Each structure stands twice: as structure tokens, then as C-alpha cells.
Simulated assay, not measured.
Amino acid sequence: MMLAAVALGASSVAPAQVAPAGAVPSVGEAVTSVANAPLLRSAVLPTADAVTREAALPAPAPVLDTPAPVHASGSLSEMVGQLRSTEAGSRELECLATAVYFESKSEPLAGQLAVGHVIANRAKSGRFAKSYCGVVFQRGQFSFIHGAALPSVPRSGQQWKTAVAIAKIVDNKLMESNVGKALFFHAKHVSPAWHASMVASIGNHLFFR
């Protein structure tokens, strides 16, 4: 009787199937498994049409910190009126506009344009940093810089919008200034011991080369 019971137990319990370590199910097994789980079929095995459509999608374009060229015409005042904005459009123009704002926001437009051109001249000269931000953050050059961040500016104000317009005019070379290739300027009420040639006097600033 005991032998019969053992035999009966062995025939009613199938032995466990143990796959070797690292074994991967065959393609037929995988398809059979997916077919038995219809809710997961579309996620596991996408259709050929879906794969083709996904492959045809264009790659996303890279995001660049380069503003689109701007256009303006007329006098300096008319150009500023066309290009005033609360947003500079790029980090580099932000640095240039901030320098124009803090160094010359109370100056006539010609004086603000001249300050903007000094920043641009420095970036091209080979004697200073090669970018607007590099020039602005160069140690000991501009008193409005404290630390590694640009100071905050009331962006809704007309003076900031004008500084943004001046920065765009300078960057897009829409109008030259009579300071030429000047690399330095200072207020008329100070007298630094500079051995440089003065090239222009505009508003409250003297410009030197």
C-alpha cells in the first residue's frame, strides 16, 4: 500500500522545470507568453507600422544660445523704439545690456551706444576676454559687478528696455558710434592717470583708445 501511495503522489505532481542560469526563452516561448497576456501585447511587441513611424520622426533641433538676427532702420532713436524689449534674448546680450544699463542709463542714446561699442570693441580686441560676459566679469573693470552674478534690473522699466535695444543694435552692427575702436571710458568728473588717447566726448563720458 505504501508503494502505491508513493507512485500515486509522483504521478500527480510534475517535477519543477529549472532553466540554466542566464538562459533566455526562445522566440517561440516569448511570443506564446505574450499572446497569453493580451493587455501587454501592444507594449511588448509594437507593430511594424509603429516602429516605422517612430524611426521617421526627425531628431530634435539643438538649443543654442544665439539670438536670431534683428533688423531695424532709421535714426538711432527710431531703431531703439523698434527694438525695445524686456528680454535680451541670450546670455551674452543680457551681459551687454546690463553693462549699458548700469554704466550709461542716464546718458543720451549716443552715449549709451558708445558704451555698448566699447564692450564690443574689447571682446574683439584680443586684449580682453572674447565675449561680452567675459569682458563684463573681468576682474576690476566694472564697479556694478559684485561676485559671479549679474545684478538684478527692473525689467519693466523704460531704461532697461532701452539698454536691451542698444545691445541689439551693437551686436547686429546696425549703427556705428563715433568712438571708433575705443576701449576705455570714464565719467568727466574723475581724472584717472591714463596714458591713452581721447577719441570722443559724449554726454558725461570721455572715451579713450
Rank of each mutant, 00 (worst) to 15 (best):
V6F: 14
W160M: 01
A200E: 09
A129Y: 01
A61V: 09
L183H: 03
S104G: 15
P67Q: 05
P15T: 13
A149I: 01
S77N: 12
V27S: 12
E103H: 10
V18E: 11
H117I: 00
A59P: 05
G81E: 15
V190A: 11
L76F: 11
I169A: 01
S104D: 02
V18A: 13
A182C: 08
E87S: 04
E87A: 02
G140S: 13
A193H: 14
S42V: 05
A163K: 00
V31W: 07
S131H: 09
V118M: 03
V170A: 04
P60S: 06
L206E: 14
D171Q: 06
F137R: 11
S90M: 04
G126W: 10
A120L: 01
P20W: 06
K173R: 14
L40Q: 04
A37I: 12
T86K: 13
V34P: 00
F208V: 08
E54F: 12
H146M: 00
S197G: 10
M1F: 12
T47Q: 14
V51M: 10
L174K: 06
P62E: 11
S77E: 14
T86G: 10
I145A: 05
N172R: 13
K181Y: 09
A187P: 05
A50T: 13
A120H: 04
L45K: 03
K130A: 13
P25S: 00
L39Y: 00
F208P: 06
A16S: 10
G180P: 06
A35W: 00
A37N: 14
V164D: 01
V31L: 15
V190P: 11
P58A: 02
G28W: 00
G81Q: 15
L76S: 08
T47L: 12
P20A: 15
E29M: 06
L109Y: 08
S191W: 06
A110S: 15
